[in-house]
Design a protein around this nucleic acid. Structure first.
Lengths: 346, 346
DNA sequence: TGCTGGATTGAAAGCGATGTCAAAGAACTG
DNA sequence: CAGTTCTTTGACATCGCTTTCAATCCAGCA
């Protein structure tokens, strides 16, 4: 029922080839003919059929971004960066989330089955063997976001978490002058927690601070949980001259809240640091010292890499590593300050 | 280069018609033949070409969701609800954001131009004439999210903000016992702010509380701004027996923080209410009384409506109105409590 | 044996675009 | 004016699938 190229051709009294040329801005069509065709197109409100077009061209100029979940700022930052870059590169971006009653495996399959995309960037919460397997047989150009840092056989963008966490820890033992550091992380199996915990241990070791197993807590990345834990410990921590390194900003915020309620002054009595530099980091009093993970950049780089792969499927795989950045705010007692209160550059 | 239906047919020694039947689970193909074809498909790792398929079927089973922006929890909630529902209805959902160097108009155009979608749900920050015009000429089934409540010529889902704000205000003047209410909103031109402010005025009027122009502040929905404002006023507000109605949770959180710092007890000295019931609402001490906007539901309803429209393009337009829900937590002094601390049902 | 009819299968006609190639004029050269 | 080139146009094959529609096979039946 919708108008096709044939209708336009008829109305303009030309062949479909000519119409096609006009659409694709080929320059071998006469000015007057072009005008006639264009007016016919307008008159019929004609839109080329994308399926037919894609069938011939074998491309849609659309790339996908699959995230494990759409909650949280990380993801919207990634999307923002990816979107912008994709558009610069001449692609449209569509986003899909994997969770919600469906695991990433089956999502990949869905996309794979009816791929109308030229490529996808996938971020998975865990790069399991199953998923790796699916990817290996993936019929589409793809890149992996935040994959493993060591020789995966995929194009990927990785964040050097370890590096960021080390920087933060060094700040705590250095300028912030911690005598003892409490680590509050997520589950012990969580890859992010693992990386951050390793950095924690490394810096404690290299600076000769005490490493007590009881200084490490494994929670669930939630505000409320950290708040409850802190309520029981803040006084003890404060009197022991501790700093707290929370593995994300939300937990750090919960700890700051508990400390304030206990009448402690952050950072004087208890310094607290977070991780991720999400919106919450600026929503505590005082705002949090944290580590900014360059999410927007990650999205952008992913698109860049993806488009290179689309352009040249033979190109050898690449891994790009991104460095997080230490953001010093008032929650860790120090004179150091940085012009870091602006949103990350796109 | 990728395998096509012809390759499968050859390998299985059947015609492409038969392969097609197997793919589409037609039941008029012999068991043994089917098995042969299926094994060939597996062996070749064959995936039907989605363009060719779409060209014939005139559908892709993919629907789109276009949001003005992907920041914030609203959006992820909408996406969550929409995703789930879309899948139930047999569609895949892709999401696109409109902002970021591109206005929604041009995004719509992009989608429109190369539509591979069966339909879209669009949410625009402002339903300007320009956009309405684009929509009117839209060649695809679509629904509008959070459009205007009065007779737009589109299928749309609207949230009855007014209703929610009235419920909250009545709670403040009733159980919370406010003598005077401060309104902290966004820009005076913002549609959300306008609706909430109207409710504010209405309830003040009906309950005979004072309406001072100076009790209404127009900020920018940001935590920091509200915090700064509150720092100057909280003591005065508290001693006047005020409640604060902030037009979103972030500003409410900023106000709570300022009050706590000033040594005031929330809610005893100053009651504060927010709006939206975002994650932040549970990240203040005490947690915020607020209004939950049923975002997930909105997404789901949008998909439902969209799919109905796709199924029957002739169906008359529909408007669906969704009611927000008052969520009472400790930030407004009251004995009233509700089982409202769980995440919204999907 | 010859027919009817159900179960399978294949041949071929699109779907709506792109792109190749040749044809038709127009313009230019000798 | 014939021959050559350039510009502009149209015919038609093609992409990979779905979907008639007809053909084939074989059982059942008179």
């Amino acid at each position: 029922m919708p108008t096709s190229i044939v209708d336009v051709a008829k109305l303009a009294k030309v062949s479909i080839s000519t119409v096609s040329r006009v659409i694709n801005r080929s320059d071998l069509v006469n000015q007057r003919t072009r005008a006639r065709v264009e007016s016919a197109i307008k008159q019929l409100n004609y839109q080329p059929n994308a399926f037919a077009r894609g069938l011939m061209l074998r491309r849609s100029d659309i790339v996908g971004l699959v995230l494990p979940d759409l909650h949280g700022e990380f993801y919207s930052e990634i999307i923002r960066g990816a979107n912008l870059k994709a558009r610069h590169l001449g692609y449209n971006l569509v986003v899909s989330s994997a969770r919600d009653g469906d695991d990433s495996h089956s999502l990949l399959r869905a996309i794979q089955q009816r791929a109308l995309l030229d490529g996808v960037a996938v971020m998975v919460s865990e790069l399991t063997d199953r998923i790796a397997e699916v990817l290996a047989a993936f019929p589409l150009p793809y890149v992996v976001l935040d994959g493993e840092i060591d020789g995966t056989p995929h194009d990927s963008i990785v964040i050097d978490q370890r590096h960021g966490a080390v920087a933060l820890m060094r700040h705590l033992v250095g300028p912030a002058g911690a005598k003892r550091i409490i680590f509050v992380g997520g589950l012990a199996t969580n890859v992010d927690t693992i990386a951050r915990l390793e950095a924690y241990r490394q810096v404690l070791a290299e600076s000769g601070l005490p490493q007590e197993a009881s200084d490490v807590y494994h929670l669930d990345y939630e505000y409320e949980t950290a708040y409850r834990l802190a309520r029981e410990h803040v006084r003890a921590w404060a009197s022991a001259g501790c700093c707290v390194f929370a593995a994300n900003d939300e937990m750090a915020a919960g700890i700051v809240a508990a400390a304030s309620e206990a009448g402690l002054n952050v950072p004087r009595d208890l310094a607290v640091a977070g991780f991720d530099d999400t919106r919450v980091a600026r929503m505590t009093r005082p705002p949090l010292t944290t580590v900014r993970v360059p999410m927007a950049k990650m999205g952008a780089q992913a698109m860049e890499l993806l488009c290179q792969r689309i352009a040249d499927p033979q190109r050898p795989r690449m891994q790009i590593s991104l460095q997080p950045e230490l953001v010093v705010r008032e929650s860790c007692g120090t004179a150091l300050r940085r012009a870091a209160d602006q949103p990350a550059p796109a």
